[in-house]
Simulated assay, not measured.
Amino acid sequence: MRNSVEIAQYIKKIRERKGLSAVELANRVGVTKGTISRYESGTRKIPMDDIPKFASVLDVSPVDILIESEDEPVVNSTEYPYYPIGISAGLPLCIDSIDEDDLEYISIPDNLMGKWAGRKDIFMMRVNGDSMNKVITHGSLIAVKPVPLSDLKNGDIVVYSDGGDYAVKRFHQRENKIIFRPDSTDDMFSDYETTKDNSDLKIHGKVVMYLVELD
């Protein structure tokens, strides 16, 4: 049977494997981020009564958490910067600037990241909304790679902002006009158009992959 430190480290490993931040796990279990941090650092023991809650959220059994299996695989992971906000897959939404203190890190298994594993220029966000649901469903975790405007191709999926308004859409360019286009099963979503001369426009990066929970 695992001791309290080993239990906390196992929960952290499963959390990271599933692409959950400490804040997301805390919200789902019903505790604070600080409590999760103290559990994972070993400065506070996880109450045995809470083990079923963690097991339910992480989709494992309480026995998996409490008892170590000899068959558990070794999974190599990499930490990536994670912005704990939902990037709009709808109309661009205003997002307050994020201080360095608010920036989190999330660990993703290298076998899930594929050729992007270990890249230092990748950052992670979550999609909020359905305007890209043919490709990226609501709640998906997206990996974004900074790319200059000149390197983008029509149809690339990008995270962009216009002033303080952020969104994720397909990129299209026609001469001086730039079009951000939805890719949705719902025809209520429409193009968002601007120009290359728009000084407030910023392309934050190209979405190179996404991870989604099916349930």
Rank of each mutant, 00 (worst) to 15 (best):
T35H: 06
L58K: 05
P62N: 11
A22L: 07
N133P: 13
A55D: 08
E24H: 04
D102C: 04
I51Q: 12
N133H: 08
L149N: 09
N133G: 11
D71R: 13
T137Q: 15
I67C: 10
T78G: 13
A143S: 12
G42V: 07
D101L: 05
V31E: 09
S107L: 01
V60S: 06
L152V: 04
K120F: 00
I157C: 01
L103N: 04
E70Q: 14
T32Y: 07
S97Y: 11
P92S: 09
R119M: 11
L141V: 08
R38P: 00
F54G: 03
N111F: 15
N154W: 03
V75S: 13
I51R: 09
I87Y: 00
P109K: 12
S97Q: 12
V57M: 09
S97H: 11
L149R: 11
G42S: 03
G90Y: 02
K33P: 12
M124D: 03
V127M: 05
I142M: 03
E40L: 07
E79K: 13
S97R: 14
I122M: 10
P92M: 11
P62S: 11
V144P: 09
R126E: 10
N76S: 15
V63S: 14
M124A: 15
P109I: 09
D130W: 06
P148D: 15
A143T: 10
I95Q: 13
Y39M: 01
I87C: 00
Y83R: 05
I65S: 10
V57R: 13
G34P: 06
D121K: 08
P92T: 08
G114T: 00
Y80N: 05
A55W: 00
D151V: 07
D151C: 09
I36L: 06
L93I: 02
I157P: 00
W116R: 08
S37W: 07
D50S: 13
T137A: 14
V127K: 02
L152W: 02
Y83P: 05
L112S: 09
K134A: 10
L66D: 13
S37K: 08
N154F: 02
